[in-house]
Amino acid sequence: MNIFRFAGDMTHLASVLVLLLKIHTIKSCAGISLKTQELYALVFATRYLDLFTDYISLYNTLMKLIFLGSSFSIVWYIRYHKIVRRSYDKDQDTFRHYFLVLPCLLLALLINEKFTFREVMWTFSLYLEAVAILPQLVLLQRTRNIDNLTGQYVFLLGAYRALYILNWIYRYFTEPHYVHWITWISGLVQTLLYADFFYYYFQSWKNNVKLELPA
């Protein structure tokens, strides 16, 4: 464990808590893409298949349970909670996220470190996580006034992977044979997808104006 990865995990945790806070306290999911939440639930379900077979540490197991639990409960809230579901804007959240799942699965079958079920699922979860934010970014461009919590949620979600890139650089230089091209390239693509969001987020913070993405 290094400071970059720990900071990344805490940032990721913070993004999930911000979202749960928004949904649980103000009982609203306005501006939140259910599609992105469903993709993230799938990412965690396919990435943490080793939850009960490989024990790494209490921290690792605890965080996996938190990410699994929170992502599925957020999907449940937006789909079935009688109050929250009313604020879900399904007419705007129209990204065909199934078109993301299949290419990621095919790519995982073609490009992976080892052709085993567990490894292909893990690789699939990496490719899917890289593009999972797309429905949310599209929704933000359609949502005129982005509320603070939603903006903070997306920012933290992007920042966590950027911190992971620093972690990979650190591990590359400190651990012999630590090379994971698939993870690194997926993580880089994922972070680059946030580039323009980060730009507008920073601008809105610097000029102290409401966050707004150009359509």
Partner: peptide, 10 residues
């Protein structure tokens, strides 16, 4: 062949 190291990252 040795078992690949477990994935220690989240």
């Amino acid at each position: 062949n040795p078992k690949p190291p477990p994935k220690d990252e989240l």
